[in-house]
Amino acid sequence: MKFTLLFILTVWVKSLRSGCSPSCIHPPGKWCSSLDSAVQCGVVKQCLESDFLRSRQTADPVHVELYYESLCPGCRLFLTHMLLPTWVLLGDIMSVTLVPYGNAQEKPDGQKYTYVCQHGEPECLGNMIETCLLNMTDMAFHIIYCMESSSDVLGAAESCVKVYAPELTTDKLMSCVKGDTGNQLMHQNALKTKALTPPHQYVPWVTINGVHTEDLQDKAMSSLFMLVCDMFKGPKPPACGGSKQQHYRSYCHNE
């Protein structure tokens, strides 16, 4: 135990000395993914604090599910302007599930399925790419945000993957998209969407802890942040106005 504490303190001091170092080559979403990345990016203290807060969290996170389609303007707006920013701020008390399918129609074709999408074949391709990403990398949310915030959703896919998941090759991704795995994953999205109660009438369609009501939908669309804060049953985190405010005093000094 003493050795572990000494090791952590040593690494902590090193990280503070090397803070804001150009040696950090990881995107923010991966800064706390390992000790090495935390040290390189000078955020060991912040990562330890975040882990400590999570370990003391006893209430279940608020689970937000988004049923959407990749080229739906309203879906793109909600995902990029409301859902991801809220998740960035409240990731310790909320979880997110994305279901790319929306108003598509599924038809059996032998042992596989074919799909007709509301915004045409490009949307079917976008839905499939995002479905495969969700199954292939833990950085899928970041990549999907990158795609959906671009003026060209499909055209941005390759560059977004290179930024957030460089280990995922285009060949590997497209093998899923065009193969049996992607087809079956999309079938699961179809089943999940068709099983919604009440049945979805539009997209984006939001459920909170598995429940959809027009009141919850309206609140999610107007301020998902406030909705998650209000529905979380545990002690409110600082971002929600909790009693214990946390200050991240980490500066890049002018040397």
Results as ranks from 00 to 15, higher is better:
residue 226 M to E: 14
residue 175 S to T: 08
residue 166 P to C: 05
residue 238 P to D: 08
residue 59 A to W: 09
residue 218 D to V: 08
residue 147 M to C: 10
residue 147 M to Y: 01
residue 212 H to R: 03
residue 122 P to Q: 06
residue 42 G to I: 03
residue 249 R to K: 12
residue 50 S to A: 11
residue 177 V to M: 05
residue 33 S to F: 06
residue 224 L to Y: 01
residue 225 F to Y: 13
residue 42 G to F: 01
residue 192 K to Q: 14
residue 14 K to N: 12
residue 50 S to I: 01
residue 109 D to Q: 15
residue 23 S to C: 10
residue 185 L to Y: 06
residue 242 G to T: 06
residue 12 W to D: 07
residue 53 L to W: 06
residue 235 P to G: 04
residue 214 E to F: 10
residue 3 F to Q: 13
residue 185 L to Q: 07
residue 143 I to W: 00
residue 71 L to K: 00
residue 91 G to Y: 02
residue 193 T to L: 04
residue 50 S to W: 04
residue 231 M to W: 07
residue 155 G to Y: 04
residue 251 Y to M: 12
residue 182 G to W: 00
residue 55 S to N: 05
residue 77 L to K: 10
residue 65 E to C: 02
residue 78 F to R: 00
residue 165 A to E: 07
residue 143 I to A: 01
residue 173 L to A: 03
residue 21 S to T: 11
residue 234 G to Q: 02
residue 106 E to T: 12
residue 89 L to K: 15
residue 158 E to A: 15
residue 145 Y to C: 04
residue 147 M to A: 04
residue 59 A to F: 08
residue 23 S to H: 13
residue 49 E to R: 13
residue 80 T to Q: 06
residue 48 L to E: 07
residue 93 I to Y: 00
residue 104 A to M: 06
residue 151 S to D: 15
residue 79 L to C: 02
residue 179 G to F: 03
residue 58 T to L: 14
residue 70 S to V: 03
residue 248 Y to P: 08
residue 49 E to G: 09
residue 235 P to F: 03
residue 126 G to R: 01
residue 35 L to F: 12
residue 87 W to I: 09
residue 191 L to Y: 05
residue 33 S to Y: 05
residue 79 L to E: 08
residue 157 A to Y: 00
residue 161 V to A: 04
residue 87 W to Y: 15
residue 115 Y to F: 15
residue 62 V to D: 01
residue 115 Y to L: 02
residue 82 M to I: 10
residue 158 E to L: 11
residue 104 A to V: 02
residue 239 A to C: 05
residue 3 F to A: 15
residue 158 E to R: 13
residue 97 T to S: 15
residue 115 Y to M: 04
residue 16 L to S: 12
residue 206 V to W: 00
residue 136 M to H: 07
residue 149 S to R: 13
residue 114 T to Y: 05
residue 254 N to H: 15
residue 81 H to I: 02
residue 246 Q to R: 15
residue 113 Y to L: 08
residue 29 G to T: 12
residue 15 S to Y: 08
residue 43 V to W: 06
residue 10 T to P: 02
residue 73 P to T: 05
residue 232 F to M: 00
